[in-house]
């Protein structure tokens, strides 16, 4: 881990949706080792600023992919990068998904919007280790069909025996799939509460609602992992911008067991 940005080169920039781009980056010199699903990097758009972005793929040759949504100056600059451009990375930071805890159990992935990005490496990992995990279910909620990430890859996941369900809030004229909140998809899967680990990422309201729905279906809180976001700045647990009660999410998160955050998420302005 370094506190100084290390230069990486953009080797591919793929538009996922109208405002989301996946940047594949490789180190110009020394690589940053230690990225695992759920951990994040501070990604620096030179001359503009840096933002925390989870890895959405971890490849060979120290190749990383970050999926970025253009919602501000920095993310907008990152989304305008093209192959050959340079970007700065520092990290990896934080605690990722505890996949050891999920070994031997069914894995239930619940993603809302761009929350699918930090979960994509989980799905790839589970599919890449048949026999280590039980059944894999991926439930995705998104705003509209055109906002769905990784469409081609979802087909691959289905072919690889994952149950993948997608629901949208705003169906277009050609949409023939589900419409509604992502939690409604929980009714479609035959969950074994005592043998399931749930991994949830998305807007915090969606996380709370999903976690409550999972608890109602009998999943214990410690088997629900959630990825949370606060205003991360230093990434090293020093500045305190990302504090959530006793937790500093850049250091103690972003992935945290719901049994540790359940009460914290109910506190306003925390």
């Amino acid at each position: 881990m370094t506190t100084v940005p290390v230069p990486y080169r953009v080797t591919a920039a793929s538009a996922e949706t109208a405002d989301c781009v996946s940047l594949e980056v490789t180190p110009v010199g020394q690589a940053l080792p230690g990225f695992t699903p759920g951990r994040f990097a501070m990604v620096y758009a030179f001359g503009v600023g840096e933002v925390p972005i989870s890895v959405s793929a971890i490849g060979g040759g120290h190749r990383l992919v970050h999926t970025v949504r253009a919602i501000g100056a920095v993310t907008g600059a990152l989304c305008r990068l093209r192959a050959g451009d340079a970007v700065g990375l520092r990290g990896p930071y934080g605690v990722g998904w505890d996949l050891d805890a999920a070994a031997g159990s069914d894995v239930l992935v619940v993603a809302g919007g761009i929350g699918l990005a930090p979960l994509r490496p989980v799905v790839r990992h589970v599919l890449g280790h048949p026999g280590h995990y039980g059944r894999l279910r991926v439930l995705i909620g998104t705003r509209a069909p055109e906002d769905l990430l990784y469409r081609e890859e979802l087909a691959h996941w289905r072919r690889a025996a994952a149950q993948v369900e997608v629901t949208v809030d705003r169906p277009g004229p050609g949409w023939r799939g589900s419409v509604g909140l992502v939690t409604t998809l929980l009714d479609r899967v035959d969950t074994r509460p005592d043998r399931t680990t749930a991994l949830v990422c998305g807007p915090e309201v969606m996380i709370r609602h999903t976690a409550r729905a999972l608890l109602a279906r009998g999943l214990p809180a410690h088997r629900i992992q959630v990825s949370l976001e606060r205003n991360m700045r230093c990434g090293t647990g020093h500045c305190g911008h990302c504090q959530l009660g006793p937790l500093l999410l850049c250091r103690d998160g972003p992935v945290v067991g719901y049994h540790r955050t359940r009460s914290l998420l109910a506190v306003r302005e925390l």
Partner: peptide, 20 residues
């Protein structure tokens, strides 16, 4: 009803609180 209320929030809108 609760699901409908949450959808009214348009959680996945561009400036929602979604971690990337």
């Amino acid at each position: 009803l609760q699901a409908t209320r949450l959808r009214l929030l348009d959680l996945y809108a561009p400036h929602g609180s979604v971690p990337s």
